[in-house]
Design a binder for these strands. Structure first.
Length: 471
RNA sequence: GCUCCCUUCGUCUAGUGGUUAGGACAUCGCCCUCUCAAGGCGGCAACACGAGUUCGAGUCUCGUAGGGAGCGCCA
């Protein structure tokens, strides 16, 4: 056999958007493949035809693309592989490792009840196991796998460690349903085998399925891949993430104004760490990530820390690189940026003051649209001062004569006005700030004035002067 | 009910027998300051519990408690 290429996969069911937990699973699998110089496969588990949709497949691919990583192979669809599943099932049947069973659902239900009554797990009693029943055209016909009675399955999970489950705890699972479709536990094994998956990374809700799957691998005489079961992501209160009370789609996070790499960074740190490091570029993640360093316990999603990380990136990224995402938010906020300052300059002005691009877009409105309302308190406090009119007049005059409309000269103007009138910077900056924004909070006064543009700045001073005089 | 898994500050985590149990977010205080931030400095704050092994246990073993997952012809 030739050296096997390292290969991981992400295998979602296309029943909705890309879930935040799924996104982390995909990220880990992608990182693991990258680090090992292997491949990352996307497989669509769409055997549940009722709930699977094409739109959901697209949403998953789009979500991954937005986050910044993509599959190397696929997408493969399980529904297009049924012939192959039949083939493998037939082989198992021929080798006496699987058998036809014909119980009705009611009968099976009764078996479960009986088992429960005995204090055992609800399970199939193996009635048809050694009967060698031939194929019959029967609506109850299923194919079951012969789980070994003796021994136990042991595997070394890359995150959970050694796990052992006795075969006596398992029953003969259905591998082919009466409707002619394979069941999950069977299809995954065939798929992972055919696709050459060497490391199965998935949520830890699958730990209990793994021994069954390993038994199938063995029956097939196949090499068993490595497994890594990831702990769950819980909400703020330690409950299961639910759509009702949380943002669960990665696209929800986009709408809330988070950067894709900030979200990746947050996700990679949730359950994994590398010393004291908090900030990781995608390249660094690829270099440093190791699935073996992932924690065993579930963790809670903390939006505050995500917000902090997001701001770290807002501050350190090249503003130009933030433009596509920021423009997307301006547009969503209904802001037409064409008549105002360059968005990149707005980013520089605001990135230390907001945590998300959504906030930033909202905040930026004052430089693109007329002031719709003045904060009463701000007006009374700063325009109501008896020094305010003189400040505004002096500033207006100097500003209108300013040859070079740039933050630095504007700062110089403010400084000189203060000096001339023998006032502190606050006495000058605040009335101007209220004039520019209608509020008493904004970026540094020079930048706030600068972004307004000369024309708008002078207009706003005039309007403020009017207000000051009428107080 | 049965099986499997998990448990370090409020949260994310470092820690692989000897640490003043470290960092980050949040929080509180101080500094800086034209507002708000950002930044700097500092504070508060954790080994679930009980036995055992050991000279020595957050680290190893067992038990208890709490939490989670699974026990489908769903994935």
């Amino acid at each position: 056999m030739t050296a096997m290429t390292f290969r991981t996969r992400f295998a979602p069911s296309p029943t909705g958007f890309l879930h935040i937990g799924g996104a982390r699973t995909a990220l880990y699998a992608w990182l693991e493949a990258r680090r090992q110089g292997g491949e990352f496969v996307l497989r669509i588990e769409d055997t549940d035809r009722e709930r699977s949709t094409d739109a959901a497949v697209q949403a998953i691919i789009d979500g991954m693309a937005w986050l910044g990583f993509a599959h190397d192979q696929g997408p493969f669809y399980q529904t297009r592989r049924t012939a192959r599943y039949h083939e493998v099932a037939a082989q198992l049947l021929a080798e006496g490792k699987a058998y036809y069973a014909y119980e009705s659902k009611d009968e099976i239900e009764a078996m479960r009840e009986a088992a429960k009554a005995r204090g055992e797990k609800p399970r199939y009693n193996g009635h048809y196991r050694d009967r060698n029943e031939p194929y019959r055209d029967d609506p109850n016909r299923v194919i079951r796998f012969k789980t070994p009675h003796e021994g136990s399955v042991v595997f070394e999970d890359k995150v959970k460690g050694r796990i052992e489950i006795a075969n006596s705890e398992l029953d003969d699972l259905v591998i082919f349903r009466s409707d002619g479709f394979p069941t999950y536990n069977f299809a995954v094994v065939v798929d992972d085998l055919d696709m050459g998956i060497t490391e199965v990374i998935r949520g830890d809700d699958h730990v209990n399925n793994t021994p069954r799957q390993i038994n199938i691998y063995k029956a097939l005489g196949a090499e068993v891949p490595a497994f890594a079961h990831l702990p769950m992501i819980l909400d703020k209160d330690g409950k299961k993430l639910s759509k009702r009370t949380n943002a669960v789609s990665v696209m929800d996070y986009r709408e809330q104004g988070f950067l894709p790499h900030a979200l990746c960074n947050y996700l990679v740190r949730l359950g994994w760490s590398h010393g004291d490091q908090e900030v990781f570029s995608l390249d660094q993640m690829v270099e440093l990530f190791d699935i073996a360093d992932v924690n065993k316990a579930a963790s809670r999603f903390d939006t505050e820390k995500l917000a902090w990380l997001n701001q770290q990136y807002l501050k350190s990224d090249d503003p130009e690189s933030l433009l596509p995402e920021f423009n997307w938010h301006l547009q969503r906020a209904g802001i037409n940026a064409s008549g105002g300052p360059a968005p990149a300059e707005v980013i520089v002005a605001l990135r230390e003051r907001v945590h998300t691009l959504k906030e930033m877009a909202e905040y930026a409105r004052i430089w693109y649209e007329p002031i719709t309302e003045y904060d009463d308190k701000a007006v009374r406090k700063h325009l109501g001062k008896d020094t305010a009119p003189a400040v505004l007049k002096a500033a207006r005059e100097a500003l209108s004569a300013l040859p070079d409309w740039q933050p630095e000269p504007i700062h110089e103007v403010v400084r000189q006005v203060a000096e001339q009138l023998e006032l502190g910077m606050g006495k000058v900056a605040q009335p101007l700030r209220v004039a520019m924004t209608g509020t008493q909070v904004s970026p540094s006064i020079d930048y706030t004035v600068y972004l307004c543009g000369r024309e708008r700045a002078l207009e706003r001073i005039d309007a403020a002067l009017e207000r000051a005089n009428s107080l």
